[in-house]
Design a protein around this nucleic acid. Structure first.
Lengths: 170, 170
DNA sequence: GTCAGTGCAAACTTTTTGCAACTAC
DNA sequence: GTAGTTGCAAAAAGTTTGCACTGAC
């Protein structure tokens, strides 16, 4: 009977978190949570405010969004990333931790499931430290940037060669 | 004889990087590199500027430091981290990639060598992506914050209990 | 009724940009 | 001499803060 599915919902988790921390159940908090869980992938605080206003017709000021994002991170309902200048967030409830591929050429962020790493991380123990989550960022080049870089390097090498030969000929 | 130890020096790596990219060997670049390699652990651009001025008597403006940190990251001589607001850097030449433990309570950053993870990362292959480096951040609580949190939670639970009992008595 | 939480605007921090001056090549 | 680099100052981007007001408890 009444299998406690509902208890597994992010909303319930937030409610319980607020209760256990003696904090208030404001409409803003649940509206923010709701908006976040309607977003697939990463988002910035700015985008979240905009989306809430546009799609949910719910206006919140930035300070509130910043405050509550921090709270939701603490409640383990949201992951915080810092790929570039400015933080990016991502829902995290019942999501498998995936690693992120960051192209240092164009800045593109891709996701990648590496089961070996995941297994390893889930069983990771560290002395004098209570592990709660992890982020793995892998830097490198996407195919497009990799090709572009090779072309660019060839061009530079040609230029260096020309300069040298020019000098030699003098 | 003349074993090419010198070629392995960061300075040589930078010189070669600059040559292959058609960039200039400015004194600022080598001064910045030098200062960075005198620092153990993480530092911010601000701290680097200060250190250069104070300890090396070499004044550079921030813009130059920012430009060249980016360049050094590209040359794989420096790692860039974004633990908090504001980037932190770290020398990376011939350094073993270590994972970072980030305490979400006090913000303390600790280093941690996990050989399993290191081995795994060094052999990692991803489709359509040329891996060049990685960062592993493990979030959690240090012993001090873990203890503090437990104490705090106990206090809140007591408070909630008192409120409930108070109501019931009414 | 009280105090945590919100909105607003201003302040602050970190990073980038535009431009004149400089210098490595 | 040319064009890549630097310094400087101003602007931009992202986040935090102070304060008055509101509303969850």
């Amino acid at each position: 009977m009444e299998k406690s599915d509902s208890k597994d919902q992010p909303k319930q988790v937030l409610a319980e978190y607020l209760r256990l921390h003696g904090l208030r159940k404001t409409p803003e908090r649940f509206a923010i949570l709701n908006a976040i869980y309607s977003i697939e992938g990463h988002f910035t605080p700015e985008v979240l405010v905009e989306k809430m206003s546009d799609e949910f017709n719910f206006r919140v000021c930035r300070a509130t969004v910043y405050n509550n994002l921090e709270l939701l991170v603490d409640a383990k309902l949201v992951h915080k990333h810092r790929f570039t200048e400015g933080a990016q967030y991502e829902k995290s409830f019942k999501e498998v931790s995936h690693c992120h591929l960051l192209c240092t050429g164009c800045g593109k962020v891709m996701e990648c499931d590496n089961h070996n790493v995941q297994r390893q991380m889930e069983t990771m123990r560290v002395k004098r430290f209570t592990v709660s989550s992890y982020s793995l960022y892998v830097y490198g080049l996407c195919t497009k940037c990799s090709t572009a870089l090779k072309r660019k390097q060839k061009k530079i090498l040609n230029k260096i060669d020309i300069q040298k030969n020019g000098r030699k000929k003098d």
